[in-house]
Design a protein around this nucleic acid. Sequence first.
DNA 1: CTGAAAGCGCTAACAG
DNA 2: CTGTTAGCGCTTTCAG
Lengths: 360, 360
Amino acid sequence: MIPTIKDVAAHAGFSIATVSRAINAPHTVNPVTLDKVRQSIDALNFRPSPLGRQLRGERTRLIGVVLPTLANPVFAECLQGIDELASAQGYRLMLMTTQYDADRERHAIETLREQRVEGLILTVADADTHPLLDDLDRAGLLYVLMHNDTVRRPSVSVDNRLAAYDGVRQLIAHGHRRILMLAGTLAASDRARQRHLGYTQAMQQAGLTPAPALEVDFNAAELSPSVLAHLTSGPNRPTALFCSNDLLAMVVMRGLRRARLQIPHDMSILGFDGLAMGELLSPPLASICAPNREIGCAAWRRLLARVTGNYEALGETSLALTLPHSLREGATIAAISNRDETSTPPKEANSENTYARNVA
Amino acid sequence: MIPTIKDVAAHAGFSIATVSRAINAPHTVNPVTLDKVRQSIDALNFRPSPLGRQLRGERTRLIGVVLPTLANPVFAECLQGIDELASAQGYRLMLMTTQYDADRERHAIETLREQRVEGLILTVADADTHPLLDDLDRAGLLYVLMHNDTVRRPSVSVDNRLAAYDGVRQLIAHGHRRILMLAGTLAASDRARQRHLGYTQAMQQAGLTPAPALEVDFNAAELSPSVLAHLTSGPNRPTALFCSNDLLAMVVMRGLRRARLQIPHDMSILGFDGLAMGELLSPPLASICAPNREIGCAAWRRLLARVTGNYEALGETSLALTLPHSLREGATIAAISNRDETSTPPKEANSENTYARNVA
DNA sequence: CTGAAAGCGCTAACAG
DNA sequence: CTGTTAGCGCTTTCAG
């Protein structure tokens, strides 16, 4: 059905070795022969099977990609970056998602190894304490982490601690003093920990009291009563929330709105990730932006360099590559006026536009 | 480095055939032998290479997935569905994106064929006029389309025409009479055409005049002046927009807000896709929902059934499988009051909440 | 410059 | 129940 190199050889009247050479080393074969072989290839619409090559122990040109989920566009954006470069360079991507589950991470990596991928690009829950990554090191299978924040392993990420620090300082600069950090089930993730560290430092430096990260159920339609209590009750309620990622920020915003809080009037919100979609929101979501697509691209470049042995050429000295983050101003952050400090949330309707200009 | 079946055979003191049988048909081998072989397998941490099997002409357990982009969560949602089922059943996914480009579609399909995938799940720009799909039919390579709206090929989709019809009728029921349909670069897509058909029918049935779909540049931060003119100028400006997909709806909403229009007060918006994220918006986006994840799952099931030859067992009679759509009410649609009909957009700020309850 | 032949890891007859 | 062997599609010595 699908033509093989044999069919081409028969059609052209040469041996399969010659056909192989015509494909892989055209200069070593007589031009006339080459021409005939090429005609046969066209005539039969032959494309060499990668399987044969792969089995021979050649390059498989297969790269495994392991991501927690595609429901969070952060990872979809990274994947776009990887895909763009990889497919342009003739590599194929094998994708597996893990839903942040350690078993599935293990299974994914195993499956991809079996498939003899040349390398792996992945985002795991916690890079430092991950025994599988040690296995990879031991087995000599190349990999690059994305977003995972560790100096111990090859990775591409923003400086999560510093980025969070910058973001929270921004909130403080807008007059906020009671700032809470929210995290999802990601609370056990290396990124979230780094971000909380940055939050803590920014708070302390400003003479404010940092709080432990408040965990929020990502999937619930409403915020739980206990969380809501933390956010709204008493004179010490926070005036600003730093959310560990944009998706969480959006879920929280909905929860707050359902609880009849106005954003940013009653609560300022700062996210993390810089999802493109955040700009489409109303009010546009303020966020600490990671160059997600670029992170994917950079991860690809690093992996390719290592796979092809050009690693030194990249001139990188450390395992962890840190890309610059940026702050995206958005109308979800309002400057706080001192008189507002202790008031309870007002109930009157108020357009977000009123506050949109406060952000400078 | 990676142990092969040979290593296991040597270690266990049996032939490779016995090892192979121990793996693939354990009941045909002496329990004692079986045990020894298994111990060797564990000792060496051997996993059979799929490459060998694949080359043998066995099942590759590889499925190709071809999507336009992951930037639109519709496709990410579908992919989630596919991935969930596929990886649970031991299949591996090879992913390629096309950016709606015909050349890249061709290239993707070709690449995946070379890789000897057992089947393909894809979304193409236009299914009916796609020569590559005819090639697949001819080559006997199985595939299932997602979202593409055609009865000529195996596909899983909602009834785009009917869904659009239902949605636009909803707009009409809310008192809108000047309703415009917007489409992105997708204007040349089969889905968009079907949706416009549904729009047209709903309008005509209500005695209203349908307009051609207005094309909008997806990527522009602002709506173009000419588009904006269509939407806002004159007494005949539309009061409601039906957007060919949710992402477009979000882009349009931002454009309108920048032009100082209030949603839904000055303009009602209805999207298409039912993106999960739409519910997180403010106001929540009204949308015609396709069960994206389920579309992915269904596509997988159909493909698997065909691949394994159990197609008849599915009891499906037609090529096109149509899944039910649903309408998601959202505060982006406001009922229109008659006196508003001819007024120009008012400028005063007004919370979306005022209108949130009008949707019934 | 071209061909014959070995072998990558595995499965499936076919013998024993 | 187990071993021998051929061969999947391809690349790569090694001869010619």
